[in-house]
Design a protein around this nucleic acid. Structure first.
Lengths: 239, 239
DNA sequence: CATACAACTGACATATTTCGTCAGTTGAGT
DNA sequence: ACTCAACTGACGAAATATGTCAGTTGTATG
């Protein structure tokens, strides 16, 4: 029972690697006929999975997707709604849109009962400073994902502007501002940059691979050795 | 195609009302035999949906669940992960657990490719003040959901402690502290309480229904007429 | 205690869906 | 022209789902 549904899920799981797959290969892996694969592709496409096939080439997925589990509890739903509300308020437009769309899908699917006009018993109010520098965040996120070296113009607390190449490792949210931790090629060390103080930000065209002593793990290991560092940082970041 | 799957989804949709349903009624609505309903219930239970049947009584769902849509994009996944990270850091344990469990389900299901040890390129660091008063939040959330009057002991900024009955309407997250907006029966007006300053909090046993002039809509309509109110509030809340 | 109710279970025949096979067509690149 | 691989339609075989029937087993109620 349900073997078909399982196969569809596994198909998506395979296609998530973003690479090319022929129906023949998929049929071999899943131990069904090619015909079945073609039918499954129809089903997936009809369900909104962005899979595309090209004659003579194979199948690929436009963008990675994932299939969530099938049951969330009320409290998980509430956590989701709160999280999306915060993201919608405190993150850059790219993530805002995603958060809205995600919550929309969820609410749209849970369409039946509607207890009150205001469904979720909370509001989220972020600070203006969190919004400054949002323009750079999509690029920074992509740089973290794909390992791109960025060139930024940064205005320090002392109002001095420096231009430098950085290898972004992680962004941090402090409830009021966003920062980006990176390996700074100018200073040859780890630095954290308040994203609202980044004046320019562009790709250099160079990429970077994880390098001993320059990875996010190294950075986190370093910071965690000094227990006072975190509190200090908060103080500095938010004054 | 997929008629069975659709029926299962509709079954959950019906059971979401949290009330009692007999197999006979469900069979009538879905236009299948009772036997099929029993088989479907097996399937749902096997899929982790918390549905329980009691002989001689009927079927009920322990806690409301919902079935998410089947495809999320990468950026939506990232928004979800960020949201859950923030909730996990800045909300009370009940929501923390839910956020963790939700993200766990999602990641567990998307188990295959794992580009790097650190999957999400961000960290979230909340303030200690956000954590104070967390003990009361589950009760407050329930009171908002179910319309319960609460009796609280509140220590004002001036350090005066008052005891009062309130009708909680909404909680707000300000990036650093949580507040609860409520109709205050003592002052006969809307008040916002910093949750970390609530010393005691208990049910009164009384409930309340939406009442003209005392609803969350009235409150929001009122606050929005004064554009400066919000900024003031932030200043006060966060000093 | 008897009765009603409704969840459950097993068996078996029937209906429906799903799958494999085969025999094509189409479109793109070489 | 040729290859590759996505696509399509048809049809029978296999697997699955469903209805019917005939029970059993807890729970609640008079």
């Amino acid at each position: 029972m349900m073997r078909r549904a399982d196969r569809l899920a596994e198909l998506v799981e395979i296609l998530r690697d973003g690479r090319l797959h022929t129906a023949r290969d998929l049929a071999a892996v899943l131990e069904v006929s090619e015909r079945t694969i073609y039918r499954d592709m129809d089903t997936l496409a009809a369900s909104g999975v962005p899979v595309e096939g090209e004659r003579g080439v194979g199948y690929m997925m436009r963008e990675p997707v994932f299939l969530p589990p099938l049951a969330l509890s009320l409290i998980e739903l509430e956590a989701l709604a709160l999280g999306m509300a915060i993201v919608g308020e405190a993150a850059d437009p790219e993530l805002q849109v995603a958060a809205e769309s995600l919550l929309g899908k969820v609410e749209g699917h849970a369409a039946v009962r509607r207890r009150s006009p205001r469904k979720w018993g909370f509001g989220v109010y972020a600070f203006e400073t969190a919004r400054a520098g949002f323009v750079h965040m999509p690029l920074i996120r992509r740089a973290i994902r794909d390992g791109l070296v960025l060139r930024i113009a940064y205005r320090s607390i002392a109002e001095e502007v420096t231009e430098r190449d950085i290898r972004p490792l992680q962004t941090e949210y402090w409830g009021r501002v966003w920062t980006c931790s990176a390996w700074c090629e100018l200073r040859a060390g780890f630095r954290s940059f308040r994203i609202d103080r980044i004046e320019k930000c562009a790709e250099t065209g160079r990429g970077f691979a994880p390098e001993l002593g320059k990875t996010i793990e190294d950075y986190l290991a370093m910071s965690s050795t000094d227990p006072s560092a975190r509190e200090d940082k908060v103080g500095i970041l938010l004054r």
